[in-house]
Design a protein around this nucleic acid. Structure first.
Lengths: 222, 222
DNA sequence: AAAATAAAATAGTATTACTGTAAAAATTAT
DNA sequence: ATAATTTTTACAGTAATACTATTTTATTTT
C-alpha cells in the first residue's frame, strides 16, 4: 500500500503492509470476501488465487477473523485520516460535523491513495461483514488486547466534535457510534432490505444518506 | 412453547413449535449459542446435549443459519406482540411511541409467557448474533423468500406510529429500523465495548437506554 | 393391526481450520 | 561473495465441521 497505518500489532503475526506477499493477501482477500462472503472465505481459496500456500497466509494472520479485524481497522484508520485532513481548516464545529459525515459516507469516492487497497470494495466488505469482527465470543479478551482501538478512537473524534457543538449533550459517544453504525446499516438495508430504509438505492443514495444523517444528528444536538 | 407464532414456513423443514423434540431444540439452542457463540455452535454439539441425533435436528432446520433466523424471527414476533398488546388502549401517538420503545428494550423483563423459550437469553442471543442472520451472501434470495418478514413488519409498525406523530417526517422507516438496531447495539457496546456507548452497564441500564432512545427519537420527530 | 412417519444409531464424505516438516528461494549480515 | 537467517512453497497430516445415506427402532395415524 502506498499509505500505511500503524495498526495494533496483535492484529497480525507479520505486518502485511510491509511485504509484497502481504499486500497481495490484503488486496485479494478484499476481493474474495466481497465475492463469496466471509463465511465461505478460506485461506486455502485465497492461497490458490494468489498462487501461494495456505501456510504462508497463516504466517501473516492467525486466522480469518484476525484478517477481517485487520481490514476493518485499516478502513476506520482511513476514514479517520480523511476526516482529520478535511476538518483541519475548519473552525465552526457544525461545519466539522457535517464534514465528518460527508467523509464517513463518501470515504470511497475520494481519489484512491493506493493501488493495493480498493477502498470502494473495502467499504462494501465493512458494510456487509464488519459487524462480525466484534460480534464474537472472545470480544472481551480481544478488546482488552486493544484490537478495536481504531474504531474506538474514531468514534471519540466525532463524539468530541459533537461535544463542541453542544457541550451539554450527555450522549455524544452513543450518538457518534450510532452515526457510524447507522450509516453502514442504512446503505446495506437500502440495497438488500429496502423495506428497512427510507433511502432509495441508486444514484443519489450517498447524498440522501448524508442529508438524513446530518438532519438526525443536528436535530438531536442543536 | 405456550405461545406460538406463525413464522414463514421456509424458515424450517418442520415446525419446531409443534413437537417435544422441536421445543427441546429451540430451548437448548438458545442456551448453547449464548454459551459458546454462533460460530462454535454445531448441530452435533446440540444433539449430544439434548440426547438426540444430529440428523434429527436436520429434520427441523436445514442448517444452523436457518435456526438462527428462526430464533430472531421468533424474537421479533414476540416484541411485536408485546407492543401490540401494550399500545392497544393508547390514543396519543407520542404515548404509543414511548410504549414501543419501552417494550423493545424491556421485552425480556416481562413475565415470561412460556417455559420453553427463555426470553432474556434469547434477547442476549439476538443482541450478540442477530446481525449474522441477515449479513449473509444469500441475503437477496432469502429476502425474496420472505425470511425477514417478521422484522420488516415490526419496523413498519413502529414507522407508522412515527408517521402518526409527525406525518411530514420523510425518514420514518430509517428512524424505526435504526431504533431497533441502535437499542441492541448500545446494549452490546455498554457491556463489551464501553468506549462506544454513553450508557453505563449496570442496574439502571434499561431505564437509561429508554430515556436516550426516546430523547433521540422525539428530538428528531417533534 | 397395518401403514406411515419420526427418531435414533451408525457410518461415510468433502471441506475446513488448522499444525508440522522439509526443501527451495529470497533476504540480510559479515 | 559467501554464509547465515528468514521467508515462502510444497506436501502431508489431523480433528472437527457440515452435511448425506442407511438401517433399525419407536411412535403416531388410519
Amino acid at each position: 500500500m502506498d499509505i500505511k497505518f500503524d495498526l495494533n500489532k496483535s492484529l497480525f503475526n507479520r505486518d502485511p503492509q510491509e511485504t509484497p506477499l502481504g499486500k497481495k493477501i490484503i488486496e485479494n482477500s478484499i476481493l474474495l470476501i466481497d465475492k463469496i462472503g466471509f463465511e465461505a472465505f478460506t485461506f486455502k481459496k485465497l492461497a490458490v488465487i494468489i498462487g501461494s500456500a495456505e501456510k504462508s497466509i497463516y504466517r501473516y494472520f492467525e486466522n480469518k477473523h484476525m484478517l477481517l479485524l485487520f481490514l476493518t481497522s485499516w478502513y476506520w484508520e482511513w476514514v479517520h485520516y480523511l476526516i482529520d485532513v478535511n476538518i483541519r481548516n475548519l473552525d465552526d464545529p457544525k461545519k466539522k460535523l457535517k464534514m465528518a459525515i460527508i467523509n464517513l459516507v463518501n470515504a470511497t469516492s475520494e481519489n484512491p491513495m493506493n493501488k493495493q487497497i480498493n477502498e470502494k470494495l473495502l467499504h462494501q466488505v465493512v458494510i456487509k461483514e464488519g459487524g462480525k469482527a466484534y460480534h464474537i465470543i472472545e470480544i472481551d479478551e480481544e478488546n482488552t488486547a486493544g484490537l478495536f482501538q481504531s474504531y474506538k478512537i474514531l468514534v471519540k473524534v466525532v463524539a468530541d466534535i459533537m461535544a463542541e457543538v453542544n457541550p451539554k449533550f450527555p450522549y455524544c459517544t452513543s450518538l457518534s457510534s450510532n452515526l457510524f453504525e447507522m450509516a453502514n446499516n442504512q446503505i446495506y438495508f437500502a440495497e438488500h432490505l429496502p423495506r428497512l430504509s427510507s433511502l432509495k438505492s441508486g444514484k443519489n443514495q450517498n447524498e440522501d444518506l448524508i442529508k438524513m444523517l446530518y438532519l438526525f444528528t443536528s436535530k438531536i444536538l442543536y
